[in-house]
Amino acid sequence: MSELQKNSNMRRPRFSPESLREVEAIYRRYPPGQRRSALMPILFLAQREFGGWLSREALDYVAELTEIPPVRVYEVATFYTMYNLKPVGKYHVQVCTNISCWLCGSDGVVQALRNKLRLKWGETGDDNRFTLTEVECLGACVNAPMMQINDDYYEDLTPDKVAEIIDRLP
């Protein structure tokens, strides 16, 4: 388990008034007295607001805001793969290499991405534009091979298609 990373160039993170209203709305989605259930959605909200990842300071802020002991917040943030514990690029490219994707040519997709982005697994480019991550099955197996870039799935990929998709990103 990687250590929680500090964010040296950030003042103490705080939610905007709009996000604080969102936090209240999240609490209302759970039964009275079950506010702890809101932790996961609040962590997603924090990740979105604080630059796409969760620093040690961000987690401490969430702990204070939710009145959940910090260690419980760290536990949750480190258990799930979708909480980024270090900065990621503007585009987080996640490629499935599990069995169905592998059978359908994910090796070629991975090679095409590596050539295009010049990144190894887990790396972020110097311009902070791309992060390349290998992921486990994302549940689109009948349209393999596939990748996810931020919130979107790209399916039925070929090496050529991959290059085109990357080129077309704004």
């Binding site: 259930s37 809101a38 996961m40 536990e75 949750v76 793969t81 979708m82």
Partner: peptide, 19 residues
Amino acid sequence: AGAYVCGEETGLVESLEGK
């Protein structure tokens, strides 16, 4: 938030409770 084990029903329940 990305954990295969949460497909197991009691793992899922723990996760729903914010753990």
